[in-house]
Each structure stands twice: as structure tokens, then as C-alpha cells.
Amino acid sequence: MSVDPKFYLALSFALFSIGAVGLLVRRNVLVMFMCVELMLNAANLAFVTFARKLNDVGGQSMVFFVLVVAAAEVVVGLGIVVAIFRRRRGATADDFHLMKG
């Protein structure tokens, strides 16, 4: 017995929306970072779902690329976050607007 793919897609949509909204509304850099991870994994879920549905291994292999990108992002992103937290305690994302034009 297999679950209808639309449930997987609904779950993926829900996860993505949670991630996107979280990214927009939260100020904490660490939480925003987790929201990005949530969105990436929602995309992964959609990839796998379509791979199963269309019987195409391309979607599953794409997941590995996304995982690699996510891992790389974690390394760089966490490094930045740690560096930020060392400099100033409890800083929010809005405190960093040095790139204002």
C-alpha cells in the first residue's frame, strides 16, 4: 500500500511555507538559518515524491546535490553565525545592515 503522492506534496508545501514565513518573521539569525534548512528539505521531499511518481531516478539524485549544497551552507553559515555571536551577544539579523546602499 502506497500513500498518495499528493499528501507528500502537501507536507512539502507546508514545510516550505513554515520555513519561508519563519525566515521572514524571525529576527534570530540561528532560527532563520534553521528555516532555510527547512525549506531545502521541503524541496528534497518534493524531489523524491516526483521521482517515485514519475519513476525517474533523476529527482532522487538531485536530492544528493541539494544535501551537498545544504551541508556546505551549514559549514559556511554556521561559521558566520558563530563569528557574529562572538562579537556581539544576542544580536539579531537586523543589527547587520552594513551593506545598506
Partner: peptide
């Protein structure tokens, strides 16, 4: 004119992306 778009706030960029 265009420099006003660059606010420096990450979430505003994220809104743009979304």
C-alpha cells in the same frame, strides 16, 4: 535611485526573493 533598494536588512531581501 537604485541604492535605496539596498537596505542592508536580510529579511527585506528574503521578502523580495519570496
Amino acid at each position: 535611485g537604485l541604492r535605496k533598494v539596498q537596505t542592508g536588512y536580510v529579511r527585506q531581501y528574503a521578502v523580495g526573493i519570496v
